[in-house]
Amino acid sequence: MDGAIWASAYGCQGKAVASSAFGRPSGELQARADSPTPAGIRQRSGAEMIMGQGAVPIIVGGEVVGACGVGGGPSEDAEACAAG
């Protein structure tokens, strides 16, 4: 996003990893991020996942092939940009 700090790139990547791993928008993961199973998966994967709003999975032919993560602004704007 315009005017974002350089460190927001790490947030974008972490949200995209979470979105692609679970096959859903990363914002949907936020409420359960501290539950044992999602927290354990995040820890075992090297703590690279960020379960916060701002990424959506890329699905082709019913399969998750990646995700688009956006950051540097309000999370609602980030997820809308990723989905758009």
Rank of each mutant, 00 (worst) to 15 (best):
D77N: 09
K15C: 06
I41D: 03
Q13Y: 06
V56I: 12
V65M: 12
G11P: 15
A78C: 13
G71I: 02
A80F: 12
M1Q: 05
Q53F: 01
G27N: 13
M51P: 15
V65K: 14
D2C: 02
A33N: 11
S20D: 10
G62W: 15
A82E: 09
G54H: 08
G23A: 00
C81Q: 07
P38K: 02
A78L: 01
C68P: 05
S75W: 11
Q30R: 06
G27T: 05
Q43A: 00
E48W: 00
R44Q: 02
S20R: 12
S35E: 14
G23H: 09
C12V: 12
A31C: 14
D34R: 12
S8I: 02
M1W: 08
D77T: 02
E79W: 11
A55H: 09
G46K: 00
V70S: 06
S19N: 01
A33T: 02
A80R: 14
A18G: 13
G11L: 07
G73P: 11
R44G: 07
P74I: 06
S75E: 10
C68A: 04
E79D: 11
A47H: 00
I5K: 10
G46T: 01
P36C: 06
A78R: 09
I5M: 06
E48R: 12
R42C: 13
S75N: 02
A33E: 15
D34I: 00
C81W: 11
G61A: 00
A82G: 08
E76K: 02
V56W: 04
G71C: 09
V60F: 15
P38H: 01
Y10P: 04
P36F: 11
M1L: 10
A55I: 04
G40D: 03
R42E: 00
E63K: 09
A4K: 13
I59E: 02
S35Q: 11
L29Q: 14
A82L: 04
A67H: 10
V17D: 10
G69Q: 10
R24I: 04
P36W: 07
G14V: 02
R24V: 03
I58L: 14
S75M: 01
F22N: 03
M49F: 11
A80I: 10
D34C: 10
E79P: 09
Q53V: 11
Q13R: 08
E28V: 05
P74A: 06
I58K: 01
I5T: 04
G71A: 08
C12A: 14
T37G: 01
G46R: 00
S8T: 15
V70F: 11
L29V: 14
A67K: 07
Q53H: 13
A67N: 03
G27V: 06
M49W: 13
A31Q: 03
I59D: 14
G52L: 12
S26Y: 15
S8K: 04
P57I: 03
A78E: 12
G52W: 06
P57F: 05
I59K: 14
M51V: 04
P36Y: 13
E48I: 06
A16R: 10
T37K: 08
